[in-house]
Structure formats: structure tokens, C-alpha cells
Simulated scan of single mutants.
Amino acid sequence: MDIEYLINKLSTTNSLCFDELLYLIKNIDKQGLELRQNLYKLASHTRDKYYGNKVFLRGLVEVSNYCKSDCYYCGIRCSNKNVDRYRLDKKDILDCCEIGYKIGYKTFVLQSGEDLYFDDDKMCDIISCIKNKYPDCAITLSLGEKSYDTYKKYFLSGADRYLLRHETSSESHYSKLHPSNLKLSNRKECLENLKEIGFQIGAGFMVDSPFQTDEDIVNDLLYLKELNPHMVGIGPFIPHHDTIFKDYKPGDLNKTLLILSITRLLLPASLLPATTALASIDPKGRNMGLLAGCNVIMPNLSPYELRNKYSLYDNKLSTGCEAYEYHKSLEDTINNLGLSIDYSRGDNINWRRVKCL
């Protein structure tokens, strides 16, 4: 197969079969670096076609690092006794949103471990308070696996989006990353439920996670193509020192950028973040992600003194241009890339909020 042909086919049809995707991933750099750069340019042009040269900002609030789950790769897993646990109260969360709103953010992302303290009543109260105070803003949740009824309550309270990475579409791979009580089938069912209720949904996975093969990555890409989420979160695996994967190598930057560009072309209307993990493995990682087709950044609005406690992986970037304090520097950096910050809600262009029955 010819790599240039595959790149052109992907950019024009937004589709490749399993064998074509696998060949592209394994061989793109064997015929010269200019092919990779061409892929990045096509991905960026595709983003611009659907969204212009805009980069959407989401204000991230890390609500709690308590978690009932024990995912093997995660630094805040419930069995890690070395974590200094915290949770924000309602006032703390609203204060974070107020700071973000004053800057101009029109989306707030509430992210948390699966903290049982936040039952439906507490979380729905928080969601409705944010929505009532900032009716022009979108609310994104990333709170893990919940029941259909809980998701529906979140939606009816005013939440607009839900991020839930599927992590891997392979049952065998999933079982190597998670304890036996967590099932891939339930994760996928959650994503289907969220979509049925009316959320903008986000799925995704880590690149170079332990035991991952290129075949796994291709299956992940094909699963995303079938699911057709509104958002896709893809970043490199980064080990945490208090997990069984502490000695594993972090994900490769160039491979992650490659997968991001392919994802942009497979799902041209997707909202694609340049993740914190990407910026954490390389100082220029986020900028490189934007030049490879990404169009979302999530600066951290969490209280400064707590950011290092929400430690999913080692060396997480929580200061500098990733943090809200440096939003002017972030704006200058993005402008220098030939892109522009968009302070609107930044909804997926194919989504309209409909009343949940």
C-alpha cells in the first residue's frame, strides 16, 4: 500500500478499513517525514473547514480526588493510600466558575474521581446552580460510570456534555487495565445511554497504555468511528509512581500526534482536545497537538494549592499556560500558531439540545 494514497483517501472519504489504518500507523515514517507533516496539515485544514481556526477553552474544575474505583493505571485509585484526598464543596465549585466566567470562559468542566459523597441530589443541585447563575454557559461532566437514571437527572438539571473515555475497545486489554468488577460492556453501555439522553458525549483512550498493540489502537479508532462521539479525548499514557505500571514508559509524543490527526480525519466534526497529558510529556506538546488538528484546551480553574493532589499520573502540568492565571500568555501563544481563541460555548456543530423525554 502507498502511504500518500492512504492519507489522501482518509482526508477525502473520512474512512479507512482496518488493514489500511494499521498500515498507515506502522509505516507512515518509513517514506519520509514530509508525509506525516502532510497528514497534520490535512487534519488542520479539516478542523478549519468545520470550525474555522478556532480553539475553544473549557474551564476545568477538579472537584474531588476520592474514587471508589481501582483502575490499575490511575494515581487516585481507591487502593492508593498515599493520596492526600480532598473534595470541593458547592461554594468552592461556584467560586471556580466565577473566576472562569470573569475571564470569559463559557464552558465549565466538572471532573472528579467516582466520589460517592456526591449523590444525585448534591450533584444536580451544583449543576442547576451553575446553570442558573451562568445560563449562557455549557456544563461538561466527567464523573465516571453512572446509571441511566443518574445521567438523565444530570441532563435535566442542565448538564450539556459528558466525558467518559472508553479506554480500549478490546475486552482482553480492558481486563489488564482494570479490576474484574469493571467491565468494558458497562462502559460502552454508559456511552450509549448518555447519547440517547441527549448529551454531547466524549470517548477516547490513552496512546501506548500498558499491553496496548497497534491493532488495539486501530480497533479503538474504528469503535470511535462507529460511536461517532461529539468529543474525543486522546492523550499519551503517563505512569504514576503509586501504580503497578510505575516502571512503564510514557506514551510516545509523535505517535499520539499521529493518532490525533487520524482521529480528526475520521471524525471531522469532533471536538478534539490538546490534552494536559500531551502538554505534560513535552513543553510544546499542546501546541503540536493544535497544529495536528486539535481545537480544544482545558485550562485549570481548580484552587492552585489542590491541583497537584488531583494526580492521575506523574508530572502533571498544572501551572504555566495550562493554568487559568496565564490566560493572556495562552492567548498570545495560540495567536502565534495562526489560530484564535474562541470564548463561546463551542458546541459540536452537529448537536442541538433537545428535551429529554
Results as ranks from 00 to 15, higher is better:
232 V>W: 00
230 H>A: 11
230 H>Y: 13
232 V>L: 06
222 L>S: 05
232 V>T: 10
233 G>M: 14
228 N>M: 06
234 I>A: 07
224 L>M: 13
232 V>I: 12
228 N>W: 00
241 H>D: 10
222 L>W: 01
226 E>H: 12
242 D>K: 09
245 F>T: 06
233 G>A: 15
230 H>R: 04
231 M>H: 15
228 N>R: 09
243 T>F: 10
239 P>N: 07
241 H>L: 12
227 L>D: 00
228 N>T: 02
231 M>L: 15
221 L>G: 06
235 G>A: 08
236 P>N: 08
239 P>H: 08
249 K>T: 07
225 K>I: 03
249 K>H: 12
237 F>K: 02
243 T>D: 10
238 I>D: 04
223 Y>L: 12
247 D>A: 12
224 L>G: 03
242 D>S: 14
231 M>E: 09
224 L>R: 00
242 D>T: 12
248 Y>W: 15
231 M>F: 11
238 I>L: 08
221 L>F: 09
229 P>W: 03
229 P>Y: 05
230 H>I: 03
240 H>E: 14
227 L>N: 01
246 K>Y: 12
249 K>F: 12
228 N>L: 05
237 F>H: 02
226 E>T: 06
242 D>M: 09
236 P>I: 10
246 K>E: 12
247 D>N: 15
234 I>H: 05
243 T>V: 11
249 K>Y: 11
234 I>M: 07
245 F>H: 06
237 F>E: 04
232 V>G: 00
238 I>R: 01
246 K>A: 15
